[in-house]
Write a protein that binds this DNA or RNA. Structure first.
Lengths: 340, 340
DNA sequence: GCTTAGTCTGTGAACGCTCCCAGAGATTGT
DNA sequence: ACAATCTCTGGGAGCGTTCACAGACTAAGC
């Protein structure tokens, strides 16, 4: 009887070598796709692998090669945001897909509380992963600092100003915000406000900057409200505040679709029609946008591609390829629907 | 300038031992919290670790101990579902949180296409993880079979009939569905239908069974429609179909909130009031429920706790503790809101 | 026929840790 | 005073790979 938990001994490279009548060096070379393996050896090894049911022991390989074939995805958000944010899931999927193609694994590091961040830093230092993709880092994020300090290859999704030299992929938040605000203005709105959020991130502050760009002289600080999170609830509070400050407001740029959805709920409650009385535009093109009534005019950002691209970049870094550009900007697109 | 990728040599347990004037055996014992380490040795080692900046090399440890301190989270869903399903994210967070507490890592394995499933099976066989939490397995899922075959400690979230002996955590889908259907009936509805989905999962088929339980003799197969996915879109199609089949239908149990939301959109479009003309109830208590107008009466399922509990169980299994019960059922709760 | 280059193979030495055993020293009981 | 026990320590062996090197054999060039 086997002792509890004792699985049968797994076949090693030695077993394969013995079975195929070659040395383990040859097996190793073949496994790693190196040249200089004769056809006869290759064939014998293939048969032997199938026969003994061999699979590589990753721990041994990692130890010998000093790399882990794993990439961390670091999400620094409270849990509620992780669940609500439509982009994080898509980024995760995109990253995972690209890494799978390269036979790398994705290790999720979700930092819910700041208490975790020291633990995570230790983990990253532990050589457990070869690189990291960092989603939604705040400005002056301790994790970002730790990574820079360790020298771990890492790519940011988004571009924190506090880490200007780190590789990143992102979108032109400022330009996109400017364009969609202009779109809103082009429908003849005269008094346009913004529900901003997450100004401690580049995405948040850049979108506000773009809004300001579009308005130019007409920009009125009093018509901007801001909140820590891109949440529906902030949208509710934001819209209420804007209506209090200027009852005759006729256009709102919400920095995310969730904010816009919250705002629209308030407007419905108060009997203001959209887009009749007030035009409203959002950002993300998440499923919120389709669920609104009317559907939301918004900026589509390719979240899955951001993930893919970040993965590609981090793989390049890991393999010693320095990207020709420090950052990559992916295109956005305005989706015209009924809300403005 | 360092050559690309060449980070400075990291301190090993030898360096610590030398610095502290003890042997590496003692350092190892201390690191693993074993008894028989004198206070003086302990103190010296602590100082030495701080001085040389030592962190454990996990690959070496994994190789020596034959375990990886990592658990896989396997999600077998098309990507669209991964993003839409409100429970998956919460399960992921719950699992991650529990594993972190035990100093285990979460490795995400997302199986988008069936093509991946062989690759994943190989990975699981590779000793890369000590156990697995399986989310949303289908009946007769090839991955589930592979895991059973490998003998990897694994816990299902949900309880596929095709793997009755595997440990699982879940909710009483059937009982909860019965209860909420009764709730709907108690509002005086006479002609009640169901939009079912995912009948190839235990959650889907059990909810249908619960609905049937509640209706008893009044059950009418003609008033049940079913779809592959718990999606809003299926809700739209489902509601249309039900209205076609029975224009005088006055109650609907939707097997998920997303389905219910789709159904309610159709009803609004067709000018039927909720809950006036038709009562509607959902399942999940996801954010869909709060976004509906009126808000949805639904079954709250503790998705994060499911994740936590699954993680706890898999950790027990990994440590050779056989759980006293093969499965654990977590309580659900009916959330009364305005929709029925 | 001899060098040279190119192809292929086997083997010792890491990689950094844990496990286990032998043994030193301190403490207790008789 | 001696055995028995408990506490603590050091170091050899092993985990399953990869890597680098040395050597064998083959083919081509002069």
């Amino acid at each position: 009887m086997a002792t509890p938990g004792a699985r049968p001994r797994r076949a090693t490279i030695f077993d394969v070598a013995a079975e195929a009548n070659v040395s383990r060096g040859t097996v190793s070379r073949m496994l790693n796709g190196e040249p200089y393996v004769s056809d006869s050896a290759r064939e014998a090894i293939e048969k032997a692998i199938a026969k003994v049911g061999y699979v590589r022991n990753m721990a041994a390989r990692n130890l010998a090669t000093q790399r882990s074939k794993a990439i961390a995805l670091i999400v620094h958000e409270p849990h509620s945001v992780f669940l609500e944010d439509p982009n994080i899931g898509a980024i995760l999927l995109g990253t995972n897909e690209r890494l799978s193609e390269a036979d790398y694994q994705l290790v999720c590091l979700i930092i819910g509380s700041d208490r975790d961040s020291a633990r995570i830093a230790d983990y990253l230092r532990g050589g457990f992963v070869d690189g990291a993709v960092i989603v939604s880092a705040r400005e002056h994020d301790p994790i970002a600092d730790a990574i820079a300090h360790i020298g771990l290859p890492a790519v940011f999704v988004g571009h924190p100003m506090s880490a200007p030299d780190m590789p990143y992929v992102g979108i032109d938040n400022r330009g996109a915000a400017r364009d969609i605000t202009r779109e809103l203005l082009s429908t003849g709105r005269k008094k346009v406000g913004m529900i901003a959020a997450a100004l401690d991130r580049d995405s948040g502050s850049e979108r506000l900057a773009g809004f300001r760009d579009a308005l130019g002289d007409q920009f009125d600080e009093n018509l901007v409200v801001d909140f820590p999170l891109y949440s529906r609830n902030s949208g509710v509070e934001g819209m209420k505040a804007l209506l209090d400050r200027a009852g005759d407001i006729d256009g709102v740029f919400a920095a995310s679709d969730a904010l816009a959805a919250g705002a629209m709920d308030v407007l419905r409650e108060r009997g203001r029609s959209v887009p009749g009385d007030i035009g409203i535009v959002g950002f993300d093109d998440s499923d919120w946008a389709m669920r609104c009534q009317p559907q939301l005019t918004t900026v589509r950002q390719p979240a899955d591609l951001l993930g893919r691209e970040a993965a590609s970049m981090v793989l390049e870094l890991v393999n010693g390829i320095t990207p020709e550009t420090p950052g990559r900007i992916l295109p956005t697109e305005i989706k015209l629907r009924g809300s403005a």
